[in-house]
Amino acid sequence: MIRLASLLLLLIGLYGVLTTKNVIKMIISINIMELGVNIFIISVGFITNGVAPNLTEHIDSSLSNFVDPLPQALVLTSIVIGLGITSLGLAFARKMNKKYGTYDLTMIGGMKDE
């Protein structure tokens, strides 16, 4: 069920990018997409009544039914990449706003490549 939800999140993000003209909204919808994919990655590794892959006092043996640790490592990286892209996107958006005075991409399209 969680997989379905994550894919829906992905599609909502895609819809967001498709319809907005404002750059900030676009970056937000890109984030929603990233979020959807990350949740999906986690759900790929999910094992029914599995245990977090961490050896502690209570779950001390590696034979217990652990959840797949690899997707969680990948998600860690993917989240940080999301952060990188968003910070860059916002920086560009701010520069664009200072230069053209608007966040609306279509408006700038008019002044072709002056």
């Binding site: 895609l14 990018v17 498709l18 319809t19 003209k21 991409l105 279509t106 399209g109």
Partner: peptide
Amino acid sequence: SSPKPAVTIFWII
């Protein structure tokens, strides 16, 4: 190739 990314996303779909 249009300045709006929405066109490209549309084509991806």
